[in-house]
């Protein structure tokens, strides 16, 4: 198993508040990691550190042994992020948003062509259908979609990126039970779809201890610190409760 992501001695503070304290964490290929913790425990911050959009105050983050800040664009593209706020380009259509996930594999002209809606609609269709949305949505502007539909467009965009590691920030919140399972299956690569390359490795933050059986490792955050890191097989229920207790 190759070590993909490696966080060492991470500290993050905003003002006097400490968001993350002394985080040591490494994720190897093939691992499906669930990230648990109360709201405000530092899950979003940890994911931002992991994808490089936030610089830690101290500590080092490495991807395959190279510091994140030194990664080339083509290496950076191996880390995909499904943001909690989705971060779709509102004015663009579904197809253009999905294609935006592939910008890292193409040049500026491709990006221009995508803006004009000229590029690879067929490919988008496969990703869109993988997330359970119908093809008729391809040309709809994302601002006209419902919350659940938008979430699935964001997932399609992440898949389009062909990454090795998927970081997802509460991808299941706001989904109905049926959709929750479907999306989770998809993100964890348990639903096999031809021609779509789903990242083998993932770090997904969530609030649902009942879904842990789909993962093989759990990390618990409390007040910015890792208080739990073990395989799902060895997990005792009280350990989960402890995460959500006030104190």
């Amino acid at each position: 198993m190759t070590k993909l992501l490696d966080l060492k001695g991470i500290y993050v503070h905003r003002g006097s508040e400490e968001c993350l304290k002394d985080i040591h964490l490494s994720i190897s290929s093939g691992e499906k990691v669930a990230l648990l913790g109360q709201s405000g425990a530092g899950k979003t911050t940890l994911l931002a550190i992991a994808n490089g959009t936030l610089q830690p105050n101290t500590g080092i983050v490495k991807w395959r042994g190279i510091k994140l800040s030194d990664l080339s664009a083509s290496q950076r593209r191996k880390i995909a992020t499904l943001w909690q706020d989705l971060r779709l380009v509102e004015e663009l259509t579904v197809a253009q948003n999905i294609n935006a996930g592939a910008l890292g594999q193409h040049n500026l002209f491709w990006a221009l062509g995508n803006l004009l809606g000229l590029i690879e609609r067929q490919a988008c269709l496969a990703y869109l259908e993988a997330t359970g949305l119908e093809g008729k949505f391809l040309d709809v502007s994302v601002q006209d979609l419902s919350g659940g539909q938008r979430q699935r467009v964001a997932i399609a965009r992440v898949l389009r990126q062909h990454a090795e590691l998927l970081l997802a920030d509460e991808p299941l919140s706001g989904l109905d039970p049926k959709l929750t399972t479907e999306v989770l299956q998809l993100l964890l690569g348990k639903k096999v779809i031809h021609s779509i390359n789903i990242p083998e490795t993932c770090l997904i933050s969530l609030h649902r201890p009942d879904l842990l059986q789909h993962f093989n490792r759990v990390i618990g955050l409390k007040k910015g610190q890792i208080v739990l890191d073990c395989s799902t097989n060895n997990l005792a229920p009280y350990e989960i409760h402890a995460l959500y207790e006030e104190r």
């Binding site: 994808n51 490089g52 959009t53 664009a73 083509s74 290496q75 950076r76 593209r77 191996k78 880390i79 995909a80 992020t81 935006a100 996930g101 910008l103 890292g104 594999q105 193409h106 040049n107 500026l108 491709w110 990006a111 990126q161 990454a163």
Partner: peptide, 9 residues
Amino acid sequence: QSGASPFSA
């Protein structure tokens, strides 16, 4: 973050 070049993004 997804690897797009600054101009494309």
